[in-house]
Simulated assay, not measured.
Amino acid sequence: MPAVKRTYRLQIMLNAEELAVLDAWRFKKGMSSRSDAVRELLRRGLTVKGHEADRGEPLQI
């Protein structure tokens, strides 16, 4: 599979607990980088059936 060219950068800030959870999840899944893990979690979150993102509504946090 050809590599996907990524031309946009997204920066986020996490606290120590959020980073630890992200790292634990990515290591459990065998992911090579934090960026890969964040992209996968974003993809999963946006494809959850019934989620507000699917209906174009603002996300409630």
Rank of each mutant, 00 (worst) to 15 (best):
A37F: 06
Q11W: 11
L59T: 10
R34A: 13
S33C: 03
S32T: 02
E52C: 04
S33P: 00
W25I: 05
E57H: 06
D23W: 02
L59M: 10
L14T: 09
S33Y: 00
S33H: 03
Q60K: 10
Q11M: 13
V21A: 11
Y8S: 15
G30K: 06
A53Y: 12
R39F: 02
L10D: 09
S35V: 09
I12C: 12
S35A: 15
R43D: 10
E40Y: 07
Y8T: 15
A16S: 09
L10Y: 14
L22M: 07
G56P: 00
N15L: 02
E57N: 08
K28Q: 13
L59G: 08
L46V: 03
G30A: 03
K29L: 12
L46F: 05
R43K: 13
L42Q: 02
D36M: 12
L10M: 15
T7Q: 13
E57R: 12
K28I: 01
G30H: 07
G56N: 00
G56I: 02
L41I: 11
A24P: 03
E18C: 06
V4W: 04
E40P: 00
L14Q: 07
H51I: 05
K49L: 05
E17W: 01
R44P: 00
R43F: 11
P58E: 11
E18Q: 15
P2M: 06
K49F: 05
R39G: 10
V48I: 14
M31V: 00
R55T: 14
L14A: 07
M1N: 09
W25H: 10
D36S: 15
S32N: 03
R26G: 07
A24S: 08
A37R: 05
R43A: 12
R6W: 03
A37W: 01
A37V: 07
E18G: 04
R55L: 13
G50H: 03
D54F: 07
H51Y: 10
D23R: 11
L10P: 09
M13N: 14
H51K: 08
E57Q: 11
T7S: 13
M1H: 09
A53N: 10
G30E: 08
R43N: 07
V4I: 14
R55D: 09
R6D: 12
L22F: 04
R55S: 13
K28M: 07
A16Q: 10
E18A: 14
I12H: 08
K29T: 06
I61D: 11
R34N: 12
R43C: 03
G50F: 00
E57P: 01
K29E: 15
D54G: 11
M31F: 12
T47V: 00
V21I: 10
E40R: 12
R26S: 09
E18P: 05
L42K: 01
V38K: 05
L10A: 15
R43T: 11
L59K: 04
T7H: 09
